[in-house]
Design a protein around this nucleic acid. Structure first.
Lengths: 303, 303
DNA sequence: GCTGAGCGTGAAGCGTTACTTCATAGGCAT
DNA sequence: ATGCCTATGAAGTAACGCTTCACGCTCAGC
């Protein structure tokens, strides 16, 4: 393969008409230019320059090669410009993986601010469940994923770096005509006699209920198992029971339910930002990382 | 400037989907590929490959760079192909400088054979006088020049390499009704009483006449000074006198003159092939060089 | 005619770099 | 659990490109 640095030298020499001028332009000594061009001529198998008393002139082969050299150099500049655009956030794509409850609550904020702040970047959001999120992260389909965990079961994936974004306290959801509906706050010990709506029994929030009730000294009566928080709210609204939920999951409650805060003794869900711990991260990914941290901080303090 | 060899590596890795495969394809060890790509990523300021369990996948920046790399490599291949075409005589230009008398006699043979043998090469012929030929040769306008000299004034130009092509004997031109017109051969001593047509007095053939007559023991009577051999022949044809000329110059004599050989004691013009003695010579130039040597040899033996 | 500036070239030496070798770590299939 | 395939790291070596210093040449100016 022809050496592109030598071709660049040739192009400069042909342009300036002199090895010395080209050397100065490119920051070399004339000797270096002369040596490299000599090698290029050997490589080419034919003379590329006519040495004259005053400077040099390209031969037919030299002019031809210099033309190719200019194309190559232009393309390399374009490549560097593209990299600079990616680095300068004037171009690029960031794919983020999220889980459904954060998708509905936090994400609108994130997306709108991202659009405003980086109008030239493409944003890809995938909403799916926990284990697939980790997989997407590991194979690079997404650069960033939002995960969650509880204190007794901290997420820990090798080669994945985690940044806690916010604490998502567990709240109580009751029907609008419930005896506690007027209150803003309650404790688990007030709820010993309630019927409970939970999500599928292997869902973590079921374990939150289990642990909280045990700490309060009673065993919850399970009235219904819902498939998601929307369904759970519906059941609560018609008086089938009360439910525990992460606050972000019921950020926009349906009409006939009320949301009450609970004490800090009820375990809170933690939302985390996860990414592969590569030395180098794509610029767009770094931008999104910072934006998520910012949005989460604001969300936390505002709420 | 981005390193093209690294870009080539990247393109190969992206194509094969594996560093090991790319290494094997390009004749490197996997370690070398890994190291170079790492450097390229540092240069790019962002990751270019997603490392996966089974091989690698390009990131957005990696795919972009690989695309540019493919363009650059294609262009470099084209450059090499062009050089090969020049070397393979399927392309190129050869400029030859000649002096008028060889142009009219030898050149038609040369041109026709050149066209036949190298149909893809361009041939540029410039016909001019001796000193300008040397100048054209020195500044590279022509790659080959045909020169001539006589034994007492050998051409010698620094950095110009000379190859004798043929001996161009001096002949006698007489009118068709001249007393010697029927003969094929004569000697200077038969010509002591003739009137002479010469070319301008500083022209070498005038010196040939001078020397030959002196050797034969007489001084020529100059009747007319002609500007070229055509004019000289015209004067001879109308009986103004006889003339000496290099044989190639009267290769195609006008109707009313006859050409007689002279003895070897009359100095012969020597025709030379001249070129700059560069280490490297353009392939088309080498081809033309050989062709000229061949044609001259045939011309010499045939005549 | 001589001299100096400008240009290209060459030999020697040095610093950098890119490769190989050898060894390690991790995932995946048998 | 074993073995293969992947990427990766440290160390050493060989090659390469550059600088320095010096020379030869041509042209312009005193």
């Amino acid at each position: 393969m022809l050496d592109v640095r030598r071709l660049a030298l040739l192009a400069a020499v042909v342009d300036t008409g002199s090895m010395t001028a080209a050397a100065e332009q490119l920051g070399y000594t004339p000797s270096a230019v002369s040596q490299q061009l000599r090698r290029l001529e050997v490589e080419a198998g034919q003379p590329l320059l006519h040495r004259q008393a005053r400077g040099v002139r390209p031969t037919e082969a030299g002019a031809l090669l210099a033309g190719h050299a200019r194309h190559v150099l232009r393309r390399l500049s374009a490549a560097e410009a593209d990299l600079a655009e990616l680095a300068g956030l004037r171009r690029g794509t960031i794919a983020v993986g999220v889980f459904p409850t954060v998708a509905s609550a936090l994400l609108p904020l994130v997306v709108s601010r991202f659009r405003r702040q980086y109008p030239d970047l493409r944003l890809d959001v995938r909403s799916t469940r926990f284990d697939e999120l980790v997989e997407l992260l590991e194979n690079g389909t997404v650069g960033i994923a939002l995960l969650w965990d509880y204190a007794w079961n901290r997420v820990d994936v090798p080669d994945i770096s985690l940044t806690p974004l916010l604490d998502d306290p567990t709240v109580l959801v009751v029907a609008a005509d419930h005896r506690l509906a007027r209150k803003r706050f309650t404790t688990m010990s007030e709820l010993a006699d309630e019927d409970w709506i939970v999500r599928a029994h292997d869902h973590p929030v079921a374990e939150v209920l289990e642990r909280s009730c045990r700490a309060a000294g009673f065993t919850p009566k399970i009235a219904f198992e819902a498939n998601d928080y929307q369904e759970a709210q519906a059941m609560v609204s018609v008086g089938l029971g009360v439910a525990l939920a992460p606050r972000t999951a019921v950020r926009n409650p349906i009409p006939d339910v009320r949301v009450l805060a609970l004490g800090t003794d009820v375990p809170a869900r933690r939302v985390l930002l996860a990414h592969r711990q590569d030395r180098l991260r794509a610029p767009a990914e770094l931008a999104m990382h910072q934006l998520l941290v910012d949005v989460a901080r604001e969300y936390q303090t505002k709420a």
